[in-house]
């Protein structure tokens, strides 16, 4: 194996990453309009970054421009979904991943709370039903100790 050592290896410097192909700033403009819409008409928006003709580095540049804010959350349903507020409150990044942690979608939501974090009314119904059932069950097991069954 010593022969291998005789082969000279030339290390090329890594190419400078995050070249700017000029796609980040227009999206910042789109976000600005969306924020205005949310503030004045109360209408939330969502921008699908998967549909953008990004070049290498464009996404990183956009993320740098947006920065990170105070909130971050992970939803576990059909694989993880990472949500964080950017440096601009009201502008959220939602990254959907599959069970193998590969990205299946990347969106920017302009809203007070991103949709996926909200509890849905149908789930509230389920919660109500579940809690009531739980309480009923508890009351049945301790007939004398129930304080709220007057």
């Amino acid at each position: 194996m010593s022969g291998l050592d005789n082969i000279p290896i030339q290390v090329e410097p890594a190419p400078a990453l995050a070249r700017d192909f000029g796609n980040a700033l227009p999206i910042l403009g789109e976000i600005r309009h969306a924020v205005a819409r949310l503030r004045h008409d109360g209408e939330p928006s969502c921008i699908d970054l998967g549909a953008m003709p990004f070049g290498p580095g464009d996404e990183a540049r956009l993320m740098t421009l947006l920065g990170r804010g105070e909130v971050s959350a992970t939803v576990t349903a059909l694989g993880p979904t990472h949500v964080w507020e950017t440096g601009y409150p009201g502008v959220w990044v939602v990254e959907y991943q599959n069970t193998e942690a590969q990205r299946v979608g990347l969106q920017i939501e302009i809203d007070e709370v991103p949709k996926i974090l909200r509890t849905q009314p149908a789930d509230l119904d389920d919660t109500l039903a579940a809690l009531e059932a739980r309480l009923r069950e508890a009351a049945g097991r301790h007939p004398d100790g129930a304080s709220d069954s007057q």
């Binding site: 699908d48 998967g50 549909a51 939803v75 059909l78 299946v104 979608g105 969106q107």
Partner: peptide, 19 residues
Amino acid sequence: RRGFLKFCAATASMMALPP
């Protein structure tokens, strides 16, 4: 339901439809 929402978001993206 959150999983379903996510599924729909990804499907919209896959069908090249707006979110």
